[in-house]
Structure formats: C-alpha cells, structure tokens
C-alpha cells in the first residue's frame, strides 16, 4: 500500500492523505513530549522553555551544566547509586523464582492453574497505591519498613508478573520433544534444563528480566512508602523535585533515563528478531 489505489475517487484520495496526516499528529503527540526534553536539558539558563538563543541555534544558548550537576551533585548521585543497588537484586529474585514457576505453570497438568496464575499476576493489576499502602502497614508491623531488603522484596514482587508473562509466552512455543530427546540420550533433568531448555527460552527470560528491571528502576510509589531516606531512588528524587523545587537538573536526569530506555528497547527488539528467526528455522 504505497498510496491510494489507482481507482480511488477524489474523496477517497483526500481521506487517504488526511488520515495519514492525523496519524502523523498522533505519533507526534506520542513521541514529541519525550524528544523535547533532550534539547531542553542542554539549556544554558535555568528555564524550562526554549530561550531565544537556543532557537537561533546559538552555541551560547547551550551548555552541559545540568549534566555536570547531575553527575557531581550528591543529591542526585546517591539516589542513582541506590537505584542501581536495588533494581538488579530485585530483578534477580523475580527472574529466578519467576522462571522456575513459569516452567511449572507450562506443564500439561497443573491443578488450580487459573487461580495460581491470577495470584501471580495480581501485583501488576492491583493499583500501586494499594500495594504501597498494604506493604507500608505490613512491613511496619514486621520491622521491614525503611530497610533495603524491604524495598528489594517489594520491587521483586512487582516485577514477577512480567517475568511470568514473558517466560510462559516463550514456553508456549517450546517444543516438548526436545526435552524428551535429551532425556532419551541420557541427560538428567538438570542438564536438560541448562543445556537444552534454558538456551531456547533465554530470550523470554531476558526480556522478562528487562521488564522486571525497568519496573524496579522506574518505580516510585512503593519505594516512597516502604523505603526511608536511606533508600531514596532516582525516580523518588525526581518526584520530590517535581513536587517541590523544580530544578532543570531533572531534565538532565530524564535524558539519561531516556537513553537507558532506548538501550533496553533496542535489546528487546534484537531479542525479538532473534527468536523470530529461530522460530522460522524450527521445523514446526
């Protein structure tokens, strides 16, 4: 479809092009707010809009001072370190437990499968503020409120549905005869898992891990309640900044986070293409 069909009437032609223009606007609406952050973060002034110098593309109007602030100011570096300390550990817990459970769930005879699935997916469905409230009350009771492990466990719970969903989706396309063949040739269950099953479902596991990581890395509501000042994460710092004294360093931080998302998205896209190619090769 590279243009309206030859037999299209005038009206159809107009509609065809105006529809594309409308779609263009919608895509613009989706992407522009994110892209606009990037040039604004190089603003030489402490404004949140384009200065006349910037519009003239005058080098004077641009500077990296907000980035310097982001990378040297302890008020931003400490939260960044905290985020990097919390997210990987939470991801590891979600991925290990989640993959195991996903394999269990994809067996052919699982009693109460529906109910179990509903419980495991619930952290994704329950509004964050309710999870946060419940965890705040409960973790205060058992003395885990305001501790590193409290935040890690809470984030791990939030990441689990994503691991379950991505890994079970990969397992649906998994050819069971491969494990049987491996067992036939004398491999034990552990060898079969690591040498046959794991390499094949790895893309699913990795994308689940990425989802779990970004969930923890971006999460602010739960950490706001379950954490204390010692666990202040990057999103938390941004949230306080937005609510109280908005400083342009937020835009630098936002640009850094956008670059991270682009990297993650690219990784996922590569994984998706790889698994598509592998599926294309498999006899089924």
């Amino acid at each position: 479809m590279s243009g309206p069909p030859i037999y299209a009437t005038m009206g159809q032609r107009i509609w065809y092009y105006s529809f594309r223009v409308i779609c263009g606007f919608i895509f613009f609406f989706l992407i522009a707010p994110i892209l606009v952050i990037i040039p604004l973060s190089f603003n030489a002034e402490d404004f949140f809009t384009f200065t006349p110098e910037m519009l003239r593309l005058d080098p004077e109007g641009y500077s990296t001072k907000h980035y310097v602030d982001f990378f040297t100011n302890e008020a931003w570096q400490q939260p960044l370190r905290n985020s990097l300390k919390i997210a990987p550990v939470a991801t590891l817990i979600s991925v290990c437990l989640g993959t195991l459970a996903a394999i269990g769930l994809s067996q052919s005879h699982v009693p109460f499968r529906r109910a179990i699935m509903a419980v495991l997916i619930s952290p994704m469905i329950v509004p964050l503020i309710i999870s946060a409230a419940g965890m705040y009350f409960f973790y205060s009771r058992i003395g885990m409120q305001g501790t590193y492990w409290g935040v890690v466990l809470a984030h791990a719970a939030l990441g689990i549905p994503f691991v379950i969903i991505t890994v079970t989706a990969t397992l649906v396309g998994f050819d069971r005869s491969l494990t049987r063949a491996a067992a036939n040739m004398g491999a034990g269950p552990v060898t079969t898992f690591f040498r046959v099953q794991m390499p094949l479902i790895l893309p699913g596991v990795i994308s689940g891990a990425l989802f779990a990581f970004i969930t923890s890395f971006d999460e602010v509501v739960v950490v706001l309640f379950v954490g204390s000042a010692g666990q202040k994460t990057l999103p938390w710092q941004m949230f306080t900044g937005l609510r109280e004294q908005i400083s342009p360093t937020i835009l630098a931080a936002a640009t850094v986070l956008i670059s991270i998302s682009v990297l993650l998205l690219a990784t996922l896209e590569i994984l998706r293409r790889r698994s598509e190619r592998l599926r294309g090769l498999s006899p089924s």
């Binding site: 937005l242 937020i250 936002a254 998302s261 682009v262």
Partner: peptide, 13 residues
C-alpha cells in the same frame, strides 16, 4: 519504555 517520571516531567515542562 520511558520512565513514567520522565513523561510526567515532560508534561509539567
């Protein structure tokens, strides 16, 4: 995939 905080700050700006 972009952080929720980033998108919210974008709209605030």
């Amino acid at each position: 995939w972009t952080s929720l905080l980033v998108r919210t700050s974008a709209w605030k700006v």
